[in-house]
Amino acid sequence: MFGLHYRLEKHGMALLLGIIFVTSIGGLVDIAPLFTIDETVEDAPDMRLYTPLEVAGRNIYIREGCYACHSQMIRTLRDEVERYGPYSLAVESKYDHPMQWGSKRTGPDLARIGGKYSDEWQVAHLIDPRAVVPQSIMPSYRFLSTTGLRTDDLGLHLKALSRVGVPYTDEMVTNATADAIAQAGADGSDGLTTRYGEATQARLFDGDPGKVTEMDALIAYLQILGRLTNAAHANSPPPGE
């Protein structure tokens, strides 16, 4: 009786191991080479990091589930390049944990939205999309301009990001909160530009000198999209399709 049971149990386990073996291979073949890919794909020495305010804005983008309607991946097709700009490179999302390439365009692609519209346009559009684009079907994000941004935990966020491989320095982690507040202020600060580069945009993103709001953070993020590196623009023209 026990002998029989033992053999049957082995049978079930054999099936289990078979399934695990068979299914692991495909995933390994697809994914494993991508982790050595740094050796073969383009490099972008000018690639800069997201500032703490942009990280906070990216987290709002994630929280609101924007990926459900907006992609951040311009494909290597002629019409996409003409509509949205140079096609996306792998290096451009190398600090995106997780990536927000998306799978559906109920609204347009946002990979290069940074700098395309003014802050005022972005604020007006987020508060009432149909006031700016009458046929738009995007929801209103009015509450962002009245919700204060949480900045006191940004150091922890940067620390966690550095643990998964984003090269934030200890100095950046320590000053995360101050840098976020400075970037959303009218004048920025010297520390901010030393740490994140001269090109860092610091201003009243929501136009309101009062408190730092979630609107400030989201627009700071949207305005940097596609502008972390110049690599895509320096690239040769697209292959076309």
């Binding site: 994914i31 987290n59 999302s93 944990h97 997780p98 990536m99 935990d153 620390k159 643990r163």
Partner: peptide, 25 residues
């Protein structure tokens, strides 16, 4: 990687193209 043990937010271990492939795998 969670931001902290008592924080709801975490950052995916993967980024960019590796994350995209893992996600769609």
């Amino acid at each position: 990687m969670p931001v902290a043990w008592n924080h709801s937010r975490a950052y995916s271990a993967f980024a960019g193209v590796q994350d995209a492939m893992t996600q769609w795998w």
